[in-house]
């Protein structure tokens, strides 16, 4: 199971859309992915250790350097395939490079 942490300012709308989209598309690509959606302000170093990939909407200053790969996932929010594909490809590239499963 590949674990992804999605985050946005309120943890309500954008991060949930990214969570749903990543679980669906990565599932379509043959990966078993579980994503969680949280508020940026709730993220700490210990929380990130429980995940394989961090997908905020935009470049995010967490106050510390993330210990896991980061993919800015904002373009997914447009729900336009041409904009979302590079994000999905970046996530899949990390999955392959790190041998995640």
């Amino acid at each position: 199971m590949i674990k992804i942490l999605a985050a946005c300012g309120a943890g309500v709308n954008s991060s949930h859309q990214i969570k749903d989209a990543l679980e669906k598309e990565m599932g379509n690509r043959g990966y078993e992915v579980k994503a969680d959606a949280v508020m940026v302000k709730d993220i700490n170093e210990d929380m990130l250790k429980n995940y394989d990939i961090f997908t905020p909407i935009a470049k995010t200053d967490l106050g510390f350097e993330p210990s896991i790969p980061v993919v800015d996932a904002g373009p997914i929010l447009y729900r336009m395939p041409a904009m979302a594909k590079p994000v999905y490809d970046a996530v899949e590239k990390i999955i392959k490079e790190k041998g995640l499963s």
Binding site: G11, N13, H16, Q17, D20, A37
Partner: peptide
Amino acid sequence: DPEGQANVLA
């Protein structure tokens, strides 16, 4: 109710 129904932003 962010988890309750289809995503509003979507």
